[in-house]
Amino acid sequence: MIPCTDFIPAYSELFKFLEEKGGKKAVTDFWNYLSDNFLGNLKSLVEQNGLRGCWMYWNHTLNEEAADFTMELDEEAGEFFITMHACPSKGRLIHEQHIEPYRDYCEHCNTLYRRVLEPLGYEYTIDLSGCDEARCKLIVKTK
């Protein structure tokens, strides 16, 4: 068994494996598939609760992933923010001495969530400029 605590390195190595098989397109095709087949809970929560569904989804995942983050929800303004001070996934990949993170590892967060949220009528933005230091900022706004 691969424990859930070792999933992130397995995920990063999968991106490399797919790129070897079919280039970057094979990686993005997989991200699209994962978004469609694994993020049904995010989609349902947002469909049922609006922007609050984002809060509910990431409240669960980020706490279980022991992330270092600030999350803000302003339903009146139609805004939801996550400021990731230390991403546990990218941080893990950076700190493991014997593995190299997939070059575009953080891009999966751009593809996976955008693909769920934009068709539901939200504007999705993610600033990955700090991803080499395991930092990013995610913004979801009501259009």
């Binding site: 999933f7 409240n59 992933e65 999350m71 929800l73 303004a77």
Partner: peptide, 16 residues
């Protein structure tokens, strides 16, 4: 407005 602020040490890393 709701705000949640967490440090890594606030939780155990176990996302099944």
């Amino acid at each position: 407005k709701e705000i949640m602020d967490r440090r890594a040490s606030d939780n155990v890393y176990l996302h099944k």
